[in-house]
Computed example of a mutant assay.
Amino acid sequence: MEEPPDGQIRSLDARSLRGLAHPLRMQLLDALRFGGPATASQLATKLGESSGATSYHLRQLAAHGFIEDAPEHGKGRERWWKAVHRGLRFDDSVLTGAGPDLRGAAELYLHEVANTQTRDLSTWLGDRTTWPDEWNLTWDMSSATLRLTPELTRELIEKMHALVDEYRNRVSDESDADSARVRIHTHAFPITTE
Rank of each mutant, 00 (worst) to 15 (best):
A177K: 12
S55D: 07
V113I: 13
P150S: 06
L28D: 11
R147C: 11
A98C: 10
V164F: 07
T45Q: 10
Y167D: 10
H64I: 00
E158Q: 13
D127H: 05
M1L: 13
G48C: 06
S143N: 13
R79S: 07
G99N: 14
S93T: 15
K82C: 08
T45Y: 02
T45L: 06
R25M: 08
D92Q: 11
R119N: 04
T123K: 06
T153E: 14
G87Q: 07
P71A: 09
D127C: 01
R59P: 00
H111P: 00
S122N: 04
R89S: 13
L24S: 09
H64D: 05
S179A: 15
N136G: 15
M160E: 02
M141L: 15
L137Y: 03
L88M: 12
M26H: 11
P71S: 09
V164Y: 09
V182L: 12
L110N: 06
D173M: 05
R168Q: 12
H57Q: 14
L95C: 09
I157E: 14
L61G: 08
T193N: 06
G104M: 03
R77V: 02
L146G: 02
A98K: 06
I9K: 03
A114I: 05
D101V: 05
A106N: 03
R33T: 10
R79L: 12
R168T: 13
D6V: 05
K82I: 02
S11I: 01
R154C: 01
T149F: 04
I157C: 08
A21V: 06
D127F: 00
A21R: 07
H185E: 05
R33W: 01
R79I: 12
T39H: 05
R25I: 07
A177E: 14
E2V: 06
D127K: 04
T153Q: 15
E107M: 02
L108T: 12
T45W: 01
R170K: 11
G35C: 08
S172P: 00
G52Q: 13
H73D: 05
R128Q: 14
R183P: 00
I9D: 12
E49V: 01
R147T: 15
R128W: 02
A144K: 08
L108D: 00
F66D: 08
I191W: 02
S50V: 02
W124G: 04
H64F: 13
D13W: 02
S179L: 01
V164R: 15
L58A: 12
E155A: 14
Q42R: 14
D30P: 00
H111N: 14
E49M: 11
D165R: 09
R77P: 00
V84K: 10
V113G: 03
S179W: 01
R15T: 14
A188Q: 04
T118E: 11
L110G: 01
F90R: 03
D178M: 07
R15K: 13
G87P: 09
T153C: 13
H85T: 07
L43Y: 05
R181L: 06
R77Q: 11
E107L: 06
F34H: 13
S175E: 07
L24N: 10
T129M: 05
M26I: 15
T192R: 08
Y109F: 15
R18Y: 03
E112N: 10
R18L: 15
T153M: 09
S143Y: 11
R15S: 12
D13N: 15
L163M: 04
K159N: 05
R77N: 11
H57E: 13
R103F: 00
I67R: 02
H111Y: 04
K159H: 06
